[in-house]
Design a protein around this nucleic acid. Structure first.
Length: 153
DNA sequence: ATATTGACCAGTT
DNA sequence: TAACTGGCCAATA
């Protein structure tokens, strides 16, 4: 398992993720203050020993996809570790980000002391997440409404 | 010191 | 959420 200033910070962020929630590699990179270091985050996590000290199962890719190179068992092991904490893994080996993705609280963010330009990027992403959520809720409402119309024409 | 690798990402087609 | 490109970053398999 690599030990460096960089990897220590990665572990610190990953340990913030609550049980039953996930973050993406890009999110972790952003919270490190290095918005484009997602790949390096994945590289570091690749070396993590799956002994439960670092909940690396709670990190997935931008689509919610599980890691092919996870531990020795690959995606199967990753799936088992996620299901062990109640996270549903879909047949295509992804998790529903709208349901499980976690962002730190405002207080947590303040503690990270991120530079202004990173905070700006963070805000944009949060904004985007909110839009996606409201879009999906609107879709759901539409479905429910159509269903009701079918039942009570 | 340079080239290569990888649990990635965003944009385009 | 497909396939592909170019870019990114840390460590060197």
């Amino acid at each position: 398992m690599p030990t460096s200033a960089f990897s220590d910070k990665v572990y610190e962020i990953v340990k913030m993720i609550p049980r039953g929630k996930v973050m993406t590699y890009g999110q972790v990179a952003l919270l490190l203050g290095l918005p484009r270091a997602a790949r390096a985050v994945g590289w570091t996590l690749h070396w993590v020993v799956d002994d439960g000290r670092i909940p690396c199962q709670r990190v997935v890719n931008r689509y919610g996809g599980l890691a092919a190179g996870y531990g020795w068992g690959g995606q199967e092991t990753h799936r088992a570790d996620l299901e062990a904490e109640g996270i549903e893994v879909r047949p295509d080996m992804t998790v529903d980000l709208e349901r499980y993705q976690w962002w730190p609280s405002a207080a947590d963010l303040a503690a990270l002391q991120l530079p202004p330009e990173v905070l700006e990027e963070l805000n944009q992403k949060l904004e985007f997440s909110r839009e996606q959520l409201s879009r999906s809720k609107a879709t759901l409402r539409g479905r429910v409404k159509r269903k009701q119309t079918e039942i009570n024409p």
